[in-house]
Design a protein around this nucleic acid. Structure first.
Length: 267
DNA sequence: GGGTACCCTCTCGG
DNA sequence: ACCGAGAGGGTAC
């Protein structure tokens, strides 16, 4: 199946916003979207997709409604450095990940290397997820609870308790993700932080990558570094994140992604 | 509001 | 080669 879309798969799938993509020897990307194991191959005008049974889900995942030229024009107009970064990295898109998967993976993404995040996520999928053949789906809360006796095999460290409690609250219905769709960005991030293991940074990541709130500006150590060296902005989380949102406006999340990716190249 | 410990793994310097 | 120290998409206390 062919998809026409302005996208560069390498930075989009490899920059760390989603954690289940693997680049293969032939240059294609293998990942799991819902219950499809898909293989994506870059073309001049988009990509070729193998294994996809739901084109609408794929379009949703890639946020095909985002017009990159419009978005980039807007954030570039606000800052010459982001203008240069976006020009240097054409086709970098934000993804829309399933909220549960996004939330659960970012709860695991604390105080570890990006490399190990992917390892933990894959381990959780391998232990509890539905078998899809070559890969497994991201597990549902119920699947995690059913197999929680062997959760320690996933080597989540101090995140294990948080991960388990998260699954319990979702499964019991004590915490529901769907109603958060209708909330404002501010209310959404406040609600998310009621969950153990979710602080301001994870809440912003889930708001951006899961709930598609493009105004979110998650600040991790790399973004904090970029904000300090490029713009002289430093301070606590709230201060830096608010500065990013104010500076870049409704598409601050895209600006964040370009800034993050610039550090990726430098590394 | 700021300072620390935190599970575990990988990396790096000796 | 082997080992100990350090760091790593932050959060809870």
């Amino acid at each position: 199946m062919h998809f026409t879309l302005e996208v560069a798969l390498d930075p989009t799938l490899g920059c760390g916003q989603a954690h289940r993509w693997r680049k293969q020897a032939d240059g294609s990307w293998q990942g799991v979207i819902g219950h499809d194991v898909v293989t994506l191959m870059q073309t001049d005008d988009g990509f070729e997709c193998e294994g996809c049974t739901d084109a609408a889900a794929l379009r949703r995942y890639f946020r095909t409604e985002d017009d990159l030229s419009t978005i980039i024009a807007e954030i570039a107009e606000k800052d010459p450095q982001v203008a240069a970064l976006s020009a240097a990295c054409p086709g970098l898109r934000l993804l829309r990940q399933p909220t549960w998967e996004c939330l659960a993976t970012y709860v695991l993404a604390t105080n570890v290397n990006v490399k190990r995040i992917a390892k933990m996520v894959e381990s959780v999928c391998d232990h509890f997820g539905t078998d899809l053949g070559t890969r497994r789906a991201f597990p549902t809360p119920r699947q995690i609870l059913d197999g929680c006796d062997c959760l320690c095999e996933c080597r989540l460290g101090f995140r294990e308790g948080r991960f388990l409690e998260l699954a319990q609250r979702m499964d019991s219905g004590d915490f529901r993700l769907a109603p958060l769709e209708r909330m404002s960005y501010e209310d959404l991030t406040v609600q998310l932080q009621d969950l153990k293991g979710v602080g301001p940074k994870v809440a912003d990541c889930v708001a951006l990558f899961g709930y598609g709130r493009l105004e979110a500006f998650p600040v991790d150590v790399r973004i904090a570094d970029e904000m300090r060296t490029r713009y002289g902005v430093e301070g606590n989380y709230q201060k830096v994140a608010a500065a990013g949102r104010k500076k870049f406006g409704r598409y601050a999340g895209y600006a964040q992604e370009f800034l993050y990716h610039s550090g990726f190249i430098a590394q």
